[in-house]
Simulated assay, not measured.
Amino acid sequence: MNQDFETFLRRFEEANTAFVNGDPSLWLPLVSRSEQSSIFGGFGGQEVGWSEIGPRYEWASSQFRDTGGTVDFEYLDTYVGADTAYTVAIERCTVHHATQPAPVPHELRATMIFRLEDNEWKITHRHADPLSPRTSPPGP
Rank of each mutant, 00 (worst) to 15 (best):
E120S: 10
P29S: 12
T67F: 01
A15H: 03
Q46S: 14
H97L: 15
D83W: 02
A110W: 01
D4P: 09
D23V: 12
H96I: 10
I53A: 08
M112D: 12
T67P: 09
T135H: 05
R10Q: 14
T87N: 14
Q46P: 00
N2G: 01
F43C: 02
Y79R: 12
N16G: 07
A18P: 00
Q36C: 01
E35M: 14
T99D: 11
A82E: 15
T99C: 04
R92M: 05
T17K: 10
V80P: 07
C93Y: 04
G139Q: 09
Q63S: 15
T7N: 04
R109I: 11
R134P: 07
I39Y: 02
N16S: 08
F73C: 02
G54V: 01
T135E: 08
W59S: 04
A128N: 13
F12L: 06
W121A: 05
Q63I: 02
A85V: 11
G69P: 00
W59D: 12
T99Q: 09
P101W: 03
E52M: 02
T70E: 12
A15F: 02
I39R: 06
P130V: 07
G139F: 09
R115F: 05
E47R: 11
S136V: 11
P105Q: 14
F43E: 11
P140N: 11
P140L: 08
L9W: 08
P29I: 01
C93Q: 04
L108H: 00
G69C: 02
A82Q: 15
V95L: 08
G22E: 13
P103W: 08
D83A: 11
R134Y: 13
S132V: 14
Y57A: 09
V71H: 01
W121T: 01
S38N: 05
R65S: 05
Y57I: 13
S37R: 10
S61L: 05
Y75A: 13
I39T: 07
